[in-house]
Computed example of a mutant assay.
Amino acid sequence: MAQRIQSFGDIASLYDVVLCDVWGVLHNGVEAFSQASEALAAARAAGLTVVLITNSPRPHPGVKVQIRGLGVLDEAYDRIVTSGDVTRALIAEGPREIYFIGAEKDLPLLGGLDVEPVGLDEAGIAVCAGLREDEAETVEDYRGELARLAARKLPFICANPDLVVERGHRLIPCAGALAALYGELGGTTQIAGKPNRPIYERSLAEAHEVRGAFDLSRVIAIGDGMPTDVRGAEAFGLDVLYISGGIHAKEYVDAGRTDEARLDAFLAREDARPKWWMPRLQ
């Protein structure tokens, strides 16, 4: 099973490149985990290249502003690659008339693309960045809307494959949950973010631009999401450092203490094989 480490410094010498998740590892949507970005800054100082790899539907410039405002250190990373970055290519390849599902803050996803947001009945494709009011709505609130889209057999581009994220001490539904419901209703989804290959290929290309050639065996992915971070990295053949204190903590944490037997059982149920684990990156 995964080996417990006390500090990322314990294993940093084994790697040249870090692909690190953002929401759940570096911050919780309200504030940064200061020790996490300090750990990445120390890794960079030791010669590692750090690429942040996030399922945010926003293009990377907006994410950089967001995480800086939460307290994530600029020194913690070399590049950022977002699901929004790789999803824009899917949107550009599709019909011009789109039905957009998401909050106003997610509209930069469409910026500069030759697309036109239209009504449900006029659209040739649906693009989903998230719930419009994710603290007030549930996925079930969208069932009727998605059923109408599925009846029209519209492709459904999901810009954020995460099912949920932490916001403070709450779990908030994401676009991935809407995509899952769309699939249940018989619709077809298109996803480029984690756990799919395009976002990993883009992230590794960014790392190559920074440092030149490196071996895939010296790349480590860090994340807390089982269906996205862990599955995606393992499918790509990368070592994984699992951050156990994230969205799945309720499966094996009681009163702030990790029950390692329950953690091992959880990983076995998920058929996941991270090489390392720690509660929070530090």
Rank of each mutant, 00 (worst) to 15 (best):
G71A: 02
A261Q: 12
L185M: 14
A129Q: 03
L26S: 03
D106R: 00
L19F: 11
E135R: 14
F156N: 06
Y99W: 15
G245R: 12
V81A: 12
P198H: 04
D10Q: 12
E184I: 05
A46C: 07
G119M: 14
R269H: 14
G144S: 05
D141L: 12
V50R: 08
M226E: 02
D121Y: 02
G256M: 03
C174H: 03
A36T: 09
A235K: 03
L181K: 11
F33A: 15
V115C: 07
I199M: 09
A233S: 09
M278F: 03
A175S: 12
P279A: 10
Y252D: 07
L113R: 01
L204P: 01
V210G: 13
V63M: 10
P279M: 07
A42C: 01
C20D: 08
N160L: 02
R202I: 03
D74I: 06
D215P: 05
D134G: 00
T87W: 01
E251H: 15
L238G: 09
R197C: 08
W276E: 09
P95Y: 05
L267A: 01
L216C: 02
L90P: 00
D264I: 08
A159F: 09
A255N: 13
Y15C: 12
F8Y: 09
T54F: 00
G71N: 04
R96N: 10
C20T: 06
L263S: 10
D121F: 08
L90H: 07
I191W: 07
T228R: 00
L110M: 09
V72T: 09
K105W: 10
L263H: 05
L48Y: 00
I172S: 15
A92C: 06
D16F: 04
R257S: 08
Y77T: 14
L263M: 03
A12N: 07
D141A: 04
V210A: 00
E116W: 13
P274V: 01
I243E: 03
A177Q: 14
H169M: 11
L146K: 00
A36I: 03
A159Y: 04
C174A: 11
L281F: 02
R273P: 00
M1E: 10
Q3T: 07
V115M: 03
N55D: 04
W276C: 04
P227Q: 05
A261L: 08
D114W: 06
H60V: 13
L181R: 15
I80V: 14
V81F: 00
E166S: 15
G94Q: 12
A205T: 05
P108H: 04
L40D: 06
V118Y: 11
S13A: 15
A151H: 01
P279F: 15
R231F: 09
R58P: 03
G130H: 04
T54Y: 05
A180P: 09
L52Q: 10
R132F: 00
A255F: 12
Y142M: 04
R262C: 03
G168F: 10
L52M: 08
E251P: 00
A103C: 09
C128M: 01
P57L: 14
G183A: 07
G111K: 12
L181E: 09
D264C: 05
P117V: 12
R211C: 07
E260Q: 06
A213N: 03
H27W: 08
E38L: 15
S7R: 12
D162T: 10
A272K: 01
H60N: 09
D224Q: 03
P61L: 11
V253Q: 13
